[in-house]
Amino acid sequence: MTSPQHDVAALRESTDTLLAALEKHADGPTGPDALLTEPSRLPGWTRGHVLAHLARNADALVNVLEGRPMYVSAEARDADIERDAPRPLAAHLDDLRDTARRLDEVLARYAGGDGDAWERTVELRNGVTDRVGAIPFRRQVEVELHHLDLGLGHGPDALPAAFTERLIAYLARRFSGNAEVPATELRTDDGRSRRTGRAAEPGGPDGLGDATGPVVVTGSATALACWLAGRTPGTGLTASTGTLPVLPPL
């Protein structure tokens, strides 16, 4: 099990990788700001929307760690993203650096306190709660997945291996017990496996693994992680039923 301090360091690495990639585009010969108005891999969002969301999410996590509501409201969250999306790349970069620094400073205060501080429960969006110690990895998930969403050459194979393994476990827990997801076994090429979805029950209603056991989905850790995260349709995966389960959006 990794420590929160380890996760803070891993978050810094992921953030630095994202910033370095964006800085290369800022120094490019073609107009970098035009890249931001192009569609990202997230439906309805430009690359500018993705970067604005990442900056505002960092601010939101600072709010959480300092005992304030994550967002004033869902409407305010969406409005802030729409407001910031059209900015030049240089403005996005300044914002991402500043917000990452503020979040890092708050996490450093927790690291400098007693160990119990990481165990404090905080409230996120929609009534979701978690430990303070889980916040650095949650933020790394945001940074890594949205780096993929930018579609600027950072593909699934660029995900850190340790992060990919943890992402599978994290999302398996998230879908565990979800009535929309048939009982599923996630099996990586090296033989490791995890269960997710609803519990397998004889006579299940949909024939997708409940009656005869879980659907076994097999592939590389990267392929499994990206499918669970909704970033691929399941490229490189096989299912024992012949059809991959349909996952609800994150």
Results as ranks from 00 to 15, higher is better:
130 D>C: 15
3 S>E: 05
152 L>R: 12
22 L>Y: 11
172 A>N: 05
42 L>I: 15
151 G>Q: 12
6 H>Y: 04
192 R>E: 01
52 A>N: 08
187 R>A: 10
79 A>P: 04
213 G>S: 10
11 L>F: 00
114 D>Y: 04
7 D>E: 13
14 S>E: 02
229 A>H: 05
149 D>Y: 11
37 T>A: 14
104 D>S: 15
169 A>P: 03
43 P>M: 07
80 D>A: 15
189 D>K: 05
69 P>E: 03
20 A>Q: 13
206 D>G: 04
134 A>E: 06
105 E>P: 01
185 E>Q: 13
155 G>R: 12
15 T>V: 11
145 L>A: 07
71 Y>E: 00
93 L>A: 07
14 S>N: 09
114 D>T: 10
67 G>E: 05
119 E>Y: 01
247 L>S: 01
39 P>K: 08
236 G>E: 01
177 G>I: 11
217 V>H: 02
150 L>S: 03
227 W>F: 09
121 T>N: 09
8 V>I: 14
180 E>R: 14
162 A>L: 02
217 V>C: 02
194 R>K: 00
190 D>S: 15
66 E>Q: 15
69 P>D: 09
159 L>Q: 07
132 V>P: 13
71 Y>D: 04
231 R>D: 02
188 T>A: 14
123 E>M: 08
123 E>V: 15
24 K>A: 12
24 K>I: 04
20 A>L: 07
22 L>H: 11
142 E>H: 03
124 L>D: 08
106 V>P: 13
160 P>R: 13
113 G>C: 06
130 D>R: 15
124 L>E: 10
127 G>D: 08
11 L>A: 04
138 R>C: 00
180 E>S: 13
208 L>E: 14
28 G>E: 11
212 T>G: 07
224 L>G: 12
105 E>Q: 13
5 Q>F: 05
97 R>E: 06
136 P>N: 00
189 D>P: 05
238 T>I: 03
13 E>R: 14
179 A>R: 12
191 G>E: 05
83 R>P: 08
71 Y>G: 06
189 D>F: 05
224 L>R: 11
242 G>P: 10
115 G>K: 13
31 G>T: 10
187 R>M: 07
186 L>C: 03
41 R>E: 07
187 R>D: 03
178 N>T: 03
123 E>L: 07
59 D>F: 00
108 A>M: 03
22 L>E: 02
13 E>P: 00
129 T>R: 15
82 E>C: 02
19 L>D: 07
162 A>D: 14
124 L>F: 12
